[in-house]
Design a protein around this nucleic acid. Sequence first.
DNA 1: GTCACTTAGTCGTCTAGAGGAGCAATGCTG
DNA 2: CAGCATTGCTCCTCTAGACGACTAAGTGAC
Lengths: 258, 258
Amino acid sequence: MQLGGIDRADDRPPYRQIADQLRAAIDRGDLVAGDKLPSEAVLIEHYGVARMTVRQAVQELRNEGRVVAEHGKGTFVRQPVQVRRLASERFARRHREAGLAAFSVEAQKAGFTPNVDQLEIATGPASPEIRDRLRLADDEEVVSRSRRYLADGQPVETAVSYLPASVAAGSRIVEADSGPGGIYARLEDMGFELDHFTEEVSARMPTAEERRRLQLTDGVPVVVLVRTAYDTTGRPLEVCDTLKAAPAYVLEYEVPAR
Amino acid sequence: MQLGGIDRADDRPPYRQIADQLRAAIDRGDLVAGDKLPSEAVLIEHYGVARMTVRQAVQELRNEGRVVAEHGKGTFVRQPVQVRRLASERFARRHREAGLAAFSVEAQKAGFTPNVDQLEIATGPASPEIRDRLRLADDEEVVSRSRRYLADGQPVETAVSYLPASVAAGSRIVEADSGPGGIYARLEDMGFELDHFTEEVSARMPTAEERRRLQLTDGVPVVVLVRTAYDTTGRPLEVCDTLKAAPAYVLEYEVPAR
DNA sequence: GTCACTTAGTCGTCTAGAGGAGCAATGCTG
DNA sequence: CAGCATTGCTCCTCTAGACGACTAAGTGAC
């Protein structure tokens, strides 16, 4: 495993540099689920810092839920969150009523002044994770489209969508700046037959960057919504990851006929 | 504000005793949102411990999201999470398809062996919070019903329902041990006309007790589902708080007709 | 072979300091 | 009176140790 050193010129404190390097090692795949982190003694030796500094770095990763320490044994990379995936009794399968209303409509209903900013669109090679989720060939590129939703100027949600370049190509999807409803309408206009969606709801601690974008303070988790849209052949057309500030949303629904 | 001391006979380490006392002060209302915690220097003096011990205690509360430290100013009790409540574009309003399927049905579909344990039912005076949510008179009692759901022996969800004693009285609700579907069917049998539900989804860090019941490790948030059932006159008949381990649930739904 | 003991390695908790940086109020200077 | 410097309080970061408790592996006695 590759770990760098402490850069005294860096404005980040040493404990954060160490945490970032360990986190990067996990993200790179140098350390995978179940692997043991270097022990405190090894990290002290490697970085030339005191024990508390190393412990503070590891504590960061523990707070983020990425590693778990076991007394007398070591500190281990945790299984990714998808370990238990269980359909809930209350959300198993449902219809949409009237298509996908835009964020702005719902926000106005709730009495907020809605806004969207930080619209970014990029085309490039897919990360292994996205390639897997979209079932892409190794060399196929993806178009990513990220945006941030605000209510009364306060950021409440960020979302990023990925589409295979072959699906997005030639469309006006890159110009879309209204919620996901816009994308799906355009896909259908282009002849793609949307069949069903899957959504996975979970929660986790945000990264520093995510905390910044949603203007969250420390210690607050985010609700994560992972949506995939499939066509009638079962091919994924789009994946969309949404992060919501902790009080995420309110549902209201009728009692079903018996 | 009342703070005790360190009990060396206590098996909890000092930093945890301090954290518990600070947490209790917040829960009691001795410290409310916006209040400043005693400074590190004051806590060191009061408890007679070293600086790192006090910091470790406060760090616990920060990790739980209960307080926030501001450099140069102090550490402050945070606002409760319900600050922003915003309807989402994707969950605004929906129907149920076929009533409320029991946890066990969905769990079996997902390939798990379901189980329910720790069924507890109690009647007593309502907390101010529950009184407010059920719109009860000051002296009206509530029936609470808590249970824990397991999949393959692993706890995945806890839930606690509250009903006004007048609604629960004389019913067999206290015997109900099958998911909420059972309760709602019984309420309708008794002549109550359910009209609609609201659900609020959020996430937060669990308390130590919640972590124990769901067998979670540190650093993992829980998804919180707060549901209220209303009758046709708009009166709340039941509130139900559900905690789910972080990978909470998976949805699947058809594309709506256009 | 089994059991008990020892030992090395690990993380948990704590002490007693140090200097630094952000913040707010005070008091001084022009 | 306005602006600036000082001061005190706060939390942030780090050092260099200490002892304890837990785990797993090796060792020896029976």
